[in-house]
Simulated assay, not measured.
Amino acid sequence: MANIVDPLVVGRVIGDVFDSLSDDESVNITVTYSNRQVFNSQELLPSSVTIKPRVQVQGGCADMRSFFTLLMIDPDVPGPSDPYLREHLHWIVTDIPGTTDATFGKSFFLCNLIPLRDDMRDRGRELVSYDIPKPSIGIHRYVFVVFKQRRRLQTLIPPSSRDNFSTRNFSEENNLGQPVAALFFNAQRQTAPRRRF
Rank of each mutant, 00 (worst) to 15 (best):
L176P: 04
T99C: 10
E25F: 04
I157G: 05
A182C: 09
L44V: 05
T30K: 12
L127W: 09
L113M: 15
E126I: 07
R86F: 04
F109R: 07
R152I: 09
F197P: 08
S41Q: 11
L176K: 03
V128D: 05
H90C: 05
P135S: 10
I92D: 06
V31Y: 02
P193G: 14
F147Q: 01
F170M: 03
F109P: 00
L116Y: 01
M1V: 11
V38C: 03
N40H: 09
V5G: 01
D101I: 09
Y142W: 09
Q190T: 05
S20T: 08
S26V: 09
G124F: 02
Q154T: 15
N186C: 12
L89Y: 01
N164W: 09
L45T: 08
E43F: 14
S81P: 06
R121Y: 13
Q154W: 11
N175P: 03
M72Q: 12
R168K: 10
F197C: 08
F67G: 00
G59L: 13
A187Y: 03
S107K: 10
F39W: 09
G59C: 13
R36I: 09
S81D: 14
V93A: 14
G98W: 07
L113W: 01
D19P: 00
S47H: 07
N40P: 06
F144W: 01
